[in-house]
C-alpha cells in the first residue's frame, strides 16, 4: 500500500515535468528559472511578505496587508488559470498546459497545522527562507538547514504517519 503511494507520488512528480526535453536545453533552462526566481524574490521583499513583523500582524489580526496579498494573488491566479483553460492557451513550447491534481489526505490537516505553527514562529515559509538569506539575514541559513532536516525526517517516518 505504502509502496504504491510512493510510486504514485513519484509519478506525480514525473508528470509535473512533462517536457523533460527542456532539461537538456541546459543553459537557457537554468537562466530562465534563475531570472524568474530573482523576480519573485524581489517581489516578496517589496511586498514585505518576508517580514516577521507582517506575519505576526496577520496572525494577530492587526493588519489587512497579508490578507490583501494572498487574496488578490489567488484571484489573479484563478482568473489566469481560467483564461488558460478557456482559451486553451499553450505553453511557449506549444504544449498543452497540464495542471497537476492534488489528492486529499489527512496530511493536509496535520501537516498544515504544523507548517502554520512553523510559519508563525519564524515568520517565513520556504520561499522567504531563501529570500531572507539573500537579503543578508545569514542566520536564517540555520533555519533553512533545519527545514531541510524536517523534510528529511518526514521522509524517514512517512510510512508510520496517518495520511
Amino acid at each position: 500500500m505504502q509502496k504504491a503511494d510512493h510510486k504514485k507520488d513519484n509519478q506525480l512528480l514525473d508528470s509535473n515535468n512533462v517536457n523533460s526535453s527542456t532539461f537538456k536545453q541546459s543553459k537557457l533552462y537554468f537562466i530562465q528559472y534563475i531570472l524568474l526566481g530573482c523576480w519573485f524574490g524581489l517581489l516578496l521583499t517589496k511586498a514585505e511578505v518576508i517580514s516577521w513583523f507582517r506575519i505576526q500582524e496577520m496572525f494577530r489580526l492587526q493588519s489587512f496587508h497579508m490578507y490583501g496579498i494572498i487574496g488578490s494573488a489567488v484571484i489573479v491566479g484563478m482568473i489566469s488559470v481560467w483564461t488558460i483553460k478557456k482559451l486553451n492557451i499553450k505553453t511557449f513550447n506549444g504544449e498543452a498546459v497540464v495542471i497537476p491534481r492534488k489528492e486529499f489526505n489527512k496530511g493536509q490537516i496535520y501537516g498544515g497545522l504544523l507548517f502554520g505553527a512553523g510559519w508563525a514562529i519564524t515568520g517565513a515559509c520556504p520561499g522567504p527562507l531563501y529570500v531572507l538569506i539573500g537579503s543578508g539575514a545569514s542566520i536564517i541559513f540555520i533555519t533553512l538547514l533545519s527545514a531541510i532536516a524536517g523534510t528529511w525526517f518526514y521522509g524517514l517516518i512517512r510510512s508510520k504517519l496517518p495520511h
Partner: peptide, 27 residues
C-alpha cells in the same frame, strides 16, 4: 530558529505543499 524551521520542513512536506503550492497555485 531550529524548532520553527523544522516545523516548516516537516509540515510542508506532510501537507504536500506550502503557501505557494497550496494557497496560491492550489486555490
Amino acid at each position: 530558529m531550529i524548532g520553527g524551521g523544522f516545523l516548516i520542513g516537516f509540515g510542508t512536506r506532510y501537507a504536500g505543499g506550502c503557501t505557494s503550492g497550496h494557497s496560491i497555485t492550489g486555490l
